[in-house]
């Protein structure tokens, strides 16, 4: 990278779209800014004391002009708003077939876990051109995952799951920053995103130390923590079954219906009294403080994997 740069690398499908808006704004801002500067400097020179300029017909108000520039400003503002909002809302719609990766922020490092269980610290390998969803959580304070080359940023907030997605357009190594101030070594909480062609990535992923996949680890935890004692097939306690749960509507005891998404499953593990399934007693204990973010992500992955299962394994 050159020592004097003015334009950051574009490495995601989003980047050129954001840049287009950025440069449109830049052109508009410089246009208006320079127009006003020229006007102010021009007036200052033309109407300096003692100049020969024509000063007749002065007036201190012009309602038509006021209304004209007010509406023009409002219209331009509305246009920029719509453009920015439209692009922003794409954030909620990752393309189908995205690979999911868990991202955990903790003072002061980033931990990433791939579906097959491979973990990395301060580095994230992703395949070129495939959409990637990163499910973010935090073990302590608020962090923010920021990849300038992707024009993408999202906070990792303790107690909830957030996500960001991107689709890369060029291979290479790109900066990863923590953008939300998180304490003493905030500026050391940075790393790299390594974008590799599909086959290289597959090779990298397969070279993982032989750990179990996230789902398998989740399944182990599901038994170890005693979840299966109530939610399993041979349970003696009456608890909701978790097969075909993820992504489906759930009727709650207080009469509402929610879609069982990642946030719902997390909340149900940490704050089971919050959304009790209709027809069941609120008897599940909270696992708050008994389970790490890391393990929580594995449990959620396992429960998600049951969505298409005919029955528990």
């Amino acid at each position: 990278m050159d020592s004097i740069t003015v334009h950051p690398i574009e490495a995601s499908t989003l980047a050129p779209q954001v840049d287009l808006l950025f440069y449109a704004l830049l052109a508009f801002s410089f246009g208006l800014g320079i127009f006003l500067t020229v006007l102010v400097v021009g007036y200052a020179v033309k109407y300096r004391r003692g100049s020969k300029a024509d000063r007749s017909g002065e007036q201190a108000r012009n309602t038509v002009l006021e209304i004209a520039w007010t509406s023009a400003t409002a219209l331009i503002a509305l246009g920029i708003f719509l453009w920015g909002a439209d692009l922003f809302l794409e954030r909620d719609h990752p393309p189908a077939g995205a690979i999911e990766i868990a991202g955990i922020g903790k003072q002061w490092m980033w931990i990433f876990e791939h579906a097959n269980g491979r973990r990395e610290i301060n580095e994230l390998h992703v395949p070129l051109g495939r959409p990637v969803v990163v499910n973010l959580s935090s073990e302590d304070v608020i962090h923010s995952m920021f990849v300038p080359a992707f024009r993408m940023k999202m906070d990792a907030v303790p107690g909830r799951e957030t996500r960001l997605w991107f689709q890369t357009t060029r291979a290479g190594t790109f900066d990863l920053f923590c953008a939300e101030y998180c304490g003493t070594q905030h500026s050391e909480m940075r790393g790299h995103i390594v974008v590799q062609p599909e086959e290289q990535f597959a090779a990298w992923l397969a070279a993982a130390p032989s750990t179990a996949s996230l789902v398998e680890q989740g399944q182990t935890l599901f038994r170890a923590l005693g979840c299966s004692g109530c939610h399993g097939p041979n349970a003696t306690v009456r608890a909701p079954r978790l097969e075909r749960l993820y992504g489906h509507p759930v009727g709650l005891s207080r009469g509402q219906t929610v879609i069982a998404d990642d946030g719902y499953i997390r909340d149900s593990i940490l704050q089971p009294q919050k959304d009790v399934v209709g027809g069941f007693d609120p008897i599940m204990p909270s696992f708050q403080g008994l389970i790490t973010e890391d393990d929580l992500g594995k449990l959620v992955a396992y429960i998600k994997s049951l969505a298409n299962a005919g029955g528990p394994p």
Partner: peptide
Amino acid sequence: GLFVFGGLAGLFLAALAVDVHLTD
């Protein structure tokens, strides 16, 4: 002069998709 350019920079930050990149 400074208020004009500072204020115009505010438009970038109010524009959602651009703010995602520029905030913080």
